[in-house]
Design a protein around this nucleic acid. Structure first.
Length: 111
RNA sequence: AGAGCAGGCCAGACAGUCGCUCCGUCUUCGGGCGGAGAGGAAAGUCCGGGCUCCACGGAUCAGGGCGCCAGGUAACGCCUGGGGGGUGCGAGCCUACGGAAAGUGCCACAGAAAAGAUACCGCCGAAGCGCCGCAAGGCGCUGGCAAGGGUGAAAUGGUGCGGUAAGAGCGCACCGCGCUGUCGGCAACGGCAGUGGCAGGGUAAACCCCGCCCGGAGCAAGACCGAAUAGGGGAGCACGUCGCCUCAAAACGACACGUGUGAUCCGCACGGCUCCCGGGUUGGUCGCUAGAGUGCAACGGCGACGUUGCAUCGAGAUGCAUGACUGUCCGCGACAGAACCCGGCUUAUCGGCCCGCUCUACGU
């Protein structure tokens, strides 16, 4: 997943928030919106406040990208997704976070 | 061996698969190959510098910081060495450590008294006066004293002897303190000798005094390219006076006013300024990592550190790169993620290693 696979501009985030469908997990929430591109794109909205500290913030972002890349393989529809972290994820274990992320991507994919 | 002190270092290791960022290289432009990729604190943003832009002519006044001495350094509030004080059996550790005989303030409670002070409980009855007595003497008053008790964190130096009516640096010895001289030391300071009878409570992380230092803002600094807008609306202040010229004005000059230069005054620059509302742009490149760099050696220095030589290049992202899974091993892994860059300080931190030293016990 290179730079083109990510949402970077404020307008792009705004488009997904305004037009997207919302799905809740235990530690995260996602907005999903179909796009007309050749690949799916991921945007991350993980504040330092919801993550705990800078280390956990980086960890969560890495896990999110990793799991997103694994989940959106070939065959699924192209979408733009924005992932939002909830504050209760501060104390969650790595495995629990990863499990929740995988669950969310499975909910995103079938559509 | 046990207990402890000081300094330095490490921050799970190895292998495989799939991915991320940057650089190099090849390319059929899909990508392939090779290399590199967070910390000792990257943190708090508390100091000091570099760098960038703004200001930069002088004087005065604010304001802030520092504070034993010497050295190191680009610089520091840091570091090294030394001195004084405190503390520990010791190795060591701690120390905002200039001035309280410039001025002002404050010192709760207790206490007689908290600063040019005082006499609560006490001690004395020598001297003077009075009374009693033949006398020795006794009693009282005028008074003398600050040793002892008691209060306190702190009460005009401490201990001892002499002295005295009782006492007192009143005298003497030692200690403390001040001054003088001398010796050692670059100095802070220390040793020794003499001398003074004792200066004078504490507090300056209270004001203050003395000495030294200090422009402002920060990489969202700043530079360039491109796009967009061609400067919208409202409110307030100012738009003045004089001179020259003229029919009158403009221009010019002086003053005034406003803005900028931390403040003030002079000087200088600019000529509209300030506030509110609304709209547009908030893309890319550079800055951006080779530097007070790192490693080793030699030399100088007690040391911090410096000089020289050789070798070496070790992150540069921009919604922000190191992860996930599997296997093996061990003492089962803490605190924690670069954002312009360095030097420090402070705070967080599972555990382990190395070197030196101290104390205690035992053996040779």
């Amino acid at each position: 997943m290179g730079r083109t696979g990510r949402l970077t501009r404020p307008q792009e985030f705004k488009r997904v928030f305004d037009n997207g469908r919302k799905i809740h997990g235990r530690f995260f929430a996602v907005f999903v919106c179909p796009n007309e591109r050749e690949e799916s794109r991921l945007g991350l909205a993980i504040s330092r406040r919801s993550a705990g500290n800078a280390i956990r913030r980086n960890l969560i972002k890495r896990q999110a990208r990793q799991s997103f890349r694994m989940a959106t393989g070939s065959g699924s529809q192209r979408v733009d997704v924005v992932l939002i972290a909830k504050a209760i994820g501060q104390t969650a274990s790595r495995a629990a976070l990863y499990q929740d992320l995988t669950f969310l991507w499975n909910r995103v994919n079938p559509c």
